[in-house]
Design a protein around this nucleic acid. Structure first.
Lengths: 327, 327
DNA sequence: CTGAAAGCGCTTACAG
DNA sequence: CTGAAAGCGCTTACAG
């Protein structure tokens, strides 16, 4: 059986109270007693039961992380960075891959509440639908509008969309299309599209956005790519709202004999480590994933400590254009 | 304040015992009482505290997942699949990115024990070093030898290495090199290398393996690629033990004016969804990630249920050659 | 400096 | 069919 505090106490010849105190380094304890307790803990290979502690303290030091899927490199990296920051301050992460499925997300939310997480970081698309306000739980959203009072951490999506579209225009593209995930007008990521539209209009061109519905299904990426090439044969510029879309489009275009970037220039979005490794030639807009993670955790911590004094409702980090060979 | 069982009991006019019973659907309860209790729970927006439950039951339904990093697409996908299977059977996943750092891994292991996880799935390289046997905890390793009694789930690494090397040889490569992560002789992934060596020797050729030490640092991939191109200018075939290495090598080779596959043929390993999206032309050996995840969880569950009857110490899934354009 | 007691929110024998 | 009591493993006022 696992040793408990009582066993340690018995072996050290003290009371459980005392053991607890040396465990928590709290109150005055005689040096000698302390040593005895430590010795006993070692001997028994004792480690405290965090469940019992948390039950009493009403604090688990666990946060929930809800994202679509770690399979997507952006979220894979974001998850790593968030977990990494958390680990460095002794927080733990309960992982939830919602695949943007509302039912799953609902289940996860319920699960997280039951497990008494101290806070939740949400990086999914299901904006506004679930009640994340419930029991004054700490919540931070990444790149998503969840509700009015929930802080949003994002990168400068408008700037990213603008940089991307302007780059294509400046390279002489006359027929620039945009590929995007499911539309979500209230959400910051939407600003990429808005920027695209603004730049297009300013240039006297007609903005056209193609939408990929099943974002996590490679086949659907290719179908949209085919559709674009069928419907707009003179397309010469594509701004894809993530690197995976961009890569799929490029592969489809090449299959049709198009030269990249001579015939069609393509720029992606996200600029993850993985996409840079696997597709180093892809021009893209890079999001500062580590910064996003750090801000999200920082703001969450503040909320959990009840510090709403300077609660920032918006944090926006700069993006970076990675100029490579597909434009 | 969060409502507790007592509050529900009071509102429903019954005892906490009864509430607990309807919660757990256990023992006989009058239909009417049941309805009253449900009504009270709804009214109060009650949800049970799993901490308290777990404390009593000595079961958390939480498992720990230790991997190097979700940034790596193989582990990103593996993590998704594992979490996905777990969620479907009401298990939760505590995520640990160890970066193959032994100290971190030690800390994580300690953390997981304190948090009373029911089991651990380990996918890191630190074989044999940590004591995963400790307190009869359920443990499953993915593609790693942890210790004699810990079950290993892996894909057929030898077959993969053989397929890869034979492909290059059959395409006429005369100078085939192998790129690998840190050597780890006791581990299944090592079989890829062993197969490479066996095939090379059989063909009367000299096996040479280059090692990438800092596996998660893109720069180090490129350094090794440069080293190879400097030291073995007549290299005409490369078998890389993961797709990221392969991509980095290809990019470096192209930078030196080499044509792929005309001058050098390259085959990778893993065949993740992400690498297929981002680099669809890469020939590679695909691991059945979902199968690995399913087996790992299945075996872990058996252990947790104390079912060691047919405890398989080895599960090996088949790999698949994805023949594309880099060979 | 140290201990006995009560309590964190639940569950389950044991009675009735 | 239902309830009072004890206990899961800890912590923290409160006494001493």
């Amino acid at each position: 059986m696992k040793p408990k505090i009582k066993d340690v106490a018995k072996l050290a010849g003290v009371s459980p109270t005392t053991v607890s105190r040396v465990l928590n380094n709290r109150g005055y304890i005689g040096e000698k007693t302390k040593q005895n307790v430590y010795k006993a803990m070692n001997e028994l290979n004792y480690y405290p039961n965090e469940l019992a502690r948390s039950l009493y303290n009403k604090r688990t030091n666990v946060i929930g992380l809800i994202i679509p899927t770690t399979t997507n490199p952006f979220f894979g990296e974001l998850t790593f960075e968030i977990e990494n920051v958390c680990a460095s301050i002794n927080y733990k992460v309960l992982l939830c891959n919602s695949l943007n499925d509302i039912e799953k997300e609902e289940k996860y939310l319920d699960m997280l509440m039951r497990n008494q997480v101290d806070g939740i970081i949400v990086g999914t698309h299901n904006q506004g639908i679930l009640d994340y306000q419930k029991q004054h739980l700490a919540v931070v959203a990444i790149d998503r509008t969840l509700s009015e009072n929930i802080p949003i951490v994002s990168s400068d999506n408008y700037e990213g969309g603008k940089l991307a579209t302007e780059l294509l225009a400046s390279k002489g593209c006359k027929r620039i299309l945009h590929i995007n995930g499911p539309v979500d007008f209230a959400t910051p990521a939407m600003l990429r599209r808005r920027a695209y539209e603004d730049v297009m209009k300013k240039n006297g061109q007609n903005p056209i956005t193609y939408e990929i519905h099943e974002t996590f299904n490679q086949k659907s990426h290719h179908e949209v790519a085919k559709k674009i090439l069928d419907e707009v044969p003179d397309v010469d510029g594509v701004f894809a709202s993530n690197d995976l879309f961009a890569a799929s489009f490029i592969s489809e275009a090449k299959a049709r004999g198009k030269k990249i970037p001579q015939d069609i220039k393509v720029i992606g979005y996200d600029g993850t480590e993985t996409s840079q490794s696997l597709f180093p030639d892809l021009t893209t807009i890079q999001q500062p994933i580590r910064l996003l993670a750090e801000s999200a955790v920082e703001i969450l911590l503040k909320q959990m400590d009840g510090d709403f004094s300077d609660k920032p409702l918006q944090v926006k980090h700069p993006v970076k254009l990675l100029l490579r060979k597909t434009t």
